[in-house]
Design a protein around this nucleic acid. Structure first.
Lengths: 204, 204
DNA sequence: GTCTATAATGAGATAGAC
DNA sequence: GTCTATCTCATTATAGAC
């Protein structure tokens, strides 16, 4: 009846999310995890038999969070730029779950890859719908043939900019401030499609 | 005086490039490498003390190749769309060195990361110059403020689409055919900036 | 240069006491 | 549920003969 404030299992997950976000699961040993949680390796093994199971348990939560970010309140109250609201909701949740935006995690736990594909498919379908509505409403002008490529490019930039910043730019410790940068990069993909009213006159 | 056709060292590098491209260096053990080359593990260790040294030796070649792809013949004979020629040259070399377009390799051999940053800086500077020329020549219309973000987005898509295809799309074996797909994705980034003559009339 | 054989690591998994 | 102590196993690293 009387559970401890937070169960050991939950404390493990909390600690792991933090440390996975900071360094990535492959760079952390089970010994370090146990020490960080303040329990023995044997006890850690009692709760999760393998490190992959910890990653998988966290992915469950990530999956739920991203679904919320994608179809939740952000998209409910439509205003002038619903796609920006959606994007903002997504980027907001991105920080808390940034370890899942590193390709290496799917190499470590390949079982998660199909679920990432499912997230990708649903997310892209959602973005595609939004873009079509914006085109219909005259906010954007996108030739139909270009919509799919635009959606995919937006997804690539939004989901890969973490790795880009880390490896191509050499940023060792990604901070929250980088989020705004990534957000602006995705915004820039859509900018050239803005209909003239929302876009200052061209200077040639 | 009489060297063997290809030295053992070179054979090791050849085999490793193949197998790293197929599976990534982290997924291949030194034992497998030795077996594949047809030598003993002890001999492999004589030539390269650690797997990272093999990766680094291959990176030397990659670095040279990408420099050639960027500033070599492709860019020499300028035609209507020099940026496409550059892009084609880059994508062409990309297949042979695709293991270096996986984020995980820089996690395995962090020493390479600064060199990747240098490649990125030079490459982006080159692309920026090309875009400015195209704008000056009236081929593209890009507001000056958008050029930098466009360059970075092009780089992200061009260098990350491999990981995207693998993990987000669930493609287990990336083939040469995927190259054309990636190429088209990068092209699509620039398409909306094409000046009206090069672009069919808008349909709203 | 190349081999065989063996040592040193280090991470994860497990048994059994408390 | 939790601990201590041990085990397994895959690599990587090395010594020394040929």
């Amino acid at each position: 009846m009387s559970e401890p404030r937070t169960s050991t299992r939950d404390r493990i997950l909390e600690v792991c999310l933090d440390v996975f976000n900071e360094r990535g699961p492959a760079e952390v040993t089970t010994a370090e995890i146990a020490a960080e949680v303040g329990i023995s390796e044997g006890n850690l093994h009692y709760h999760f038999r393998r490190k992959e199971q910890i990653v998988a348990a966290l992915f469950d939560q990530f999956e739920a969070a991203i679904e919320r970010a994608g179809s939740g309140t952000a998209f409910r109250h439509l205003h002038a730029q619903p796609h920006l609201a959606y994007l903002a909701g997504w980027f907001n949740s991105m920080w808390a779950w940034r370890c899942f935006y590193a390709a290496s995690i799917y190499r470590l736990v390949p079982a998660l890859q199909p679920r990432l594909t499912a997230i990708t498919d649903r997310g892209q379908a959602h973005i595609r719908r939004m873009l079509r509505e914006l085109v219909r409403d005259g906010v954007l002008i996108v030739p139909p043939a270009e919509i799919d490529r635009l959606v995919v490019n937006a997804w690539i930039v939004a989901s890969c900019w973490f790795d880009y910043v880390r490896y191509s730019q050499g940023v060792h410790k990604v901070t929250r401030e980088h989020l705004n940068w990534g957000f602006a990069q995705v915004e820039a993909l859509v900018a050239p499609y803005a209909a003239p009213p929302g876009r200052p006159a061209r200077r040639d």
